[in-house]
Simulated scan of single mutants.
Amino acid sequence: MRSLSENAVDRASLARLAKMLADDEITSGRAWACFSQPDQLKNFGDQKIAFSAAEVKAYKSLRKLASTKLFKQFKGACVYCRRPVGRYGYSWHIEHVWPKALHPRKTFLMSNLAVGCVDCNRWKGVRVDKTAAQVLPIIDPTQRGFKYSRHLGYVQISTEDLHLIKYLTKDALGAETHALLNFSEIERFTLIDSMNGDLAQLHSELRRLLGACNPEDPEDERLIELLLKLRGSIYRVQGT
């Protein structure tokens, strides 16, 4: 992300977080929370971190630049499920492909950042990020020469009344991605939402709540798990 720094203040502000992370003064989750929401005082209960007005401005500027670059690089689509994100699509997060908790040195590397929709980001956090220390069990869209079509096929059909998405697995990584990120649920709720406006509205609110949760917070982590289970139960019942 240093390459996005436009001036000495940006570089110094980013270097401060990177040094705190390297010196084990702060966890990768807290470092990213500071970068993402740089309030004047960041209170983590056992740790308080203050930033100057210049640093707050620098972090906000760098995040905007990173988001713009990633959105363009990945063509406005989630790197895992390929659904559109942004203004006319689903909510999204800056995604750490190799989990920052296990790979803190990759926290601010643009080469490890991508576009992830709320759905894929949350399932990856629950099922992948806690164990991917040496091997990533799902596709790595940041890998040199990566081609989505080698691992997964993405079929989308829309009519006036129906919207259908189908994923076709082509190899072991594609199959694991499909299973761990719960693509079957995406297929199910996409179809059901297109036929049931009330349920689609409820789903939109569930997704908003998921997007507002902080996976670094233990309380929010439990809420995320509960919301994902609740959504799964709703759509399993509707799909029967």
Rank of each mutant, 00 (worst) to 15 (best):
N182S: 13
R82G: 08
Y90I: 04
G145L: 14
R82A: 08
R150N: 15
F74R: 01
F44T: 03
R83Q: 07
D39Q: 15
P84V: 10
I192D: 03
P137A: 01
Y148Q: 13
K147V: 07
D23K: 11
E6Y: 04
R122H: 11
R222H: 07
D198N: 13
R11W: 05
S3H: 11
D129E: 14
I26D: 09
F44K: 12
A18Y: 10
K75I: 09
E216N: 15
K57A: 13
R144T: 11
T240M: 11
R63V: 07
Y88K: 14
W123T: 07
E55L: 10
C120I: 00
Q156S: 10
S233Y: 08
A179K: 07
V155E: 12
D129P: 06
A66W: 03
G116E: 02
K106L: 15
G153Q: 04
M20K: 05
V85I: 05
T68I: 02
M1Y: 09
A50T: 08
A50Q: 00
C78E: 02
S3R: 10
L41S: 13
Q201H: 13
A200F: 06
A132R: 00
W92F: 04
E187Y: 02
V135D: 06
L199T: 10
K19C: 10
K130R: 14
N121E: 01
L17M: 04
C213D: 10
V155F: 07
Q37V: 04
G45Q: 04
S111A: 12
V79D: 00
I186A: 05
G86L: 00
K166S: 11
H151T: 10
I192N: 06
V115A: 03
D23C: 07
F44V: 11
D193I: 04
R82F: 07
R87N: 04
H96I: 01
E187M: 08
L181V: 00
L223K: 12
M195D: 14
R127T: 09
R127F: 13
Q73A: 12
D46W: 07
K75F: 09
L210I: 04
Y90K: 02
L209A: 13
S111Y: 09
F108G: 01
A77S: 06
Q201P: 00
A132S: 02
K106W: 09
A175T: 08
Y235V: 12
S91Y: 02
K106I: 03
D217A: 05
R16Q: 09
K124Y: 00
L70Y: 04
L206I: 14
D171P: 11
L113S: 04
N121L: 00
M195T: 15
K130Y: 14
L226D: 12
E187H: 10
V126K: 05
S52M: 01
A175I: 01
M20T: 07
E205P: 06
A200S: 15
F146I: 05
H96Y: 00
I139A: 13
A18T: 15
R222L: 06
N112W: 10
S67F: 02
V56Y: 05
S5H: 09
G174V: 08
Y167A: 10
L209G: 07
I157F: 01
I26A: 11
F44Q: 03
E25D: 11
R222N: 07
L102G: 00
C117R: 00
M1R: 02
I49Y: 01
L209W: 03
I49D: 04
F108V: 08
K100D: 06
F183C: 03
R105Y: 09
V97K: 00
T142M: 09
K69D: 11
S204C: 05
S149P: 12
N182E: 13
K170L: 14
A22S: 14
C34K: 05
L41R: 09
